[in-house]
Amino acid sequence: MVGAIGRQPAFRSLGHAHGRHSYREKLDQPMSHPNPPPPPTWRKPAGMFMILGIIAVLAWIIGSQSDVIGGWPIWMQAIVYLFLGTIWIAPLRPLLLWMETGKWRE
């Protein structure tokens, strides 16, 4: 025989009562920012195009040398392509700094 041992009575509350104001009403109110974000500058899109330009130029240079690199042993090709595939990251730090602050150095 199965009994009601361990079951809670049906009339017991399962949590706190619903608040006076619903969550949706709080979302409908405009949020106030103590420090509004600054307006976007022209440096961000310009920096983005500069990054894409750097990648395109390096890809063209590396691609134009593929005949020479293709004749090397596979292990040497792997090292060269890993190095050349990550070299485009080097100019990103000053470029991203310029995009954010307008200065090339900290």
Rank of each mutant, 00 (worst) to 15 (best):
L58V: 01
A46I: 09
P34H: 07
F83N: 09
G6N: 10
G19L: 07
E106K: 11
V80G: 05
M48A: 09
S66H: 14
Q29E: 13
W104M: 14
R20Y: 01
G63R: 02
P73E: 08
P45L: 15
S66A: 13
L97N: 15
G6Q: 02
I69R: 14
K103R: 15
P9D: 07
K103E: 13
F83K: 09
K26V: 03
T41H: 04
A59P: 07
W42N: 10
H16M: 01
H18D: 13
T101F: 00
L52H: 00
K44T: 13
S32Q: 11
G3F: 07
V57A: 14
W60F: 14
G63D: 02
H33P: 04
L27M: 15
A59T: 10
R20N: 15
V68M: 14
P94R: 12
S64Y: 11
G85R: 07
T41G: 11
W88E: 05
M50W: 00
K26E: 13
G102L: 04
L58N: 09
T41K: 02
V80Y: 09
P40C: 11
H18T: 08
I89D: 03
W104V: 13
H21R: 12
Q65G: 08
M1K: 09
R12P: 00
T41R: 04
P94Y: 12
S64H: 14
G85W: 10
Q65A: 14
I61Y: 05
R24C: 07
A56Y: 04
G102E: 12
E25Y: 01
I79E: 08
Q8W: 00
I74L: 14
P36W: 08
I69G: 08
R12T: 03
W88S: 12
N35V: 15
V57W: 06
T86V: 09
E100H: 12
G71Y: 06
R43D: 10
T101Y: 06
G3D: 10
P91Y: 00
P39F: 11
R93C: 01
I79M: 15
P36I: 04
I62E: 08
K44E: 08
R12G: 00
E100P: 00
L52V: 06
N35T: 13
W42Q: 03
Y81H: 14
V68C: 03
T86K: 03
G85P: 13
I51Y: 05
A59Y: 03
G102I: 13
G19D: 10
N35D: 14
Q77T: 03
L14P: 03
I55Y: 03
R24Y: 11
T41W: 05
Q8F: 06
S66P: 04
